[in-house]
């Protein structure tokens, strides 16, 4: 029998396997696409679930961390005795380093009018250790809270802080709403 040189058995097997591989790769793609919403995802901290454990300062792949403290001025009480600024039992309510909770003096206290003070965060100094957040949440309004800063975040495929976050507060959020800043963002009840 004359051999068909242009299309032999091996070629046939090869092309049928290839066709089934195309179909399976396409099938996986189609199944994955079915769930897709066409949005991109970034990581963000839900401030209402964060328990200020301090791992954000140490676990981020960036050093210093891409997590910074953010001040929601809207809900700040502008207190003189700020629970986020002063260590408990501070000797004097002034800007002396021995009275400050922040290890890097990233929280700047500014007098506004009697008896109110504004607290601003110097992001270049902030390391995301959440010490001030803990103080503010425990004794104040909780206006100081942690957020992932997207100009610093590398948007790792899996956030290395999220992996060890004890309260599972770090979540994927749609990239068109990349922040959960208190005041504009309120606690979700459908959890």
């Amino acid at each position: 029998m004359k051999k068909n040189k242009r299309f032999n058995r091996r070629d046939f097997i090869q092309s049928s396997i290839r066709a089934s591989l195309v179909v399976s790769v396409g099938g996986i793609g189609g199944l994955a696409l079915k769930n897709s919403t066409g949005r991109d995802w970034v990581w963000q901290i839900d401030p209402f679930e964060c328990n200020q454990c301090g791992r954000c300062a140490t676990e981020c792949v960036r050093n210093p961390s891409a997590v910074k403290c953010v001040h929601a001025y809207d809900i700040c009480g502008y207190c003189d005795l700020c629970g986020g600024y002063f260590i408990p039992g501070a000797v004097k309510l002034d800007t002396g380093a021995e009275n400050q909770l922040c290890p890097t003096a990233a929280l700047i206290r500014k007098f506004i009018e009697e008896p109110y003070f504004e607290y601003e965060i110097d992001e270049d100094l902030c390391i995301g250790c959440a010490k001030c957040v803990k103080g503010c949440t425990s004794f104040g309004n909780g206006s100081l809270h942690l957020q992932i800063r997207h100009d610093l975040c590398r948007n790792c495929n899996e956030c290395s802080i999220a992996r060890v976050c004890p309260s599972k507060a770090i979540k994927r959020v749609p990239s068109d709403t990349p922040y959960m800043i208190k005041g504009s963002f309120t606690k979700t009840t459908d959890t």
Binding site: V70, I112, E118
Partner: peptide, 26 residues
């Protein structure tokens, strides 16, 4: 309700708002 209500300023203090640097666009 908050523990410490937001004060009403008399000196015309303008309250800043937190910055939100955008992530890489789609």
């Amino acid at each position: 309700q908050q523990r410490f209500p937001k004060p009403e300023f008399e000196t015309g203090y303008v309250q800043p708002s937190p910055t939100t640097p955008e992530p890489r666009g789609l």
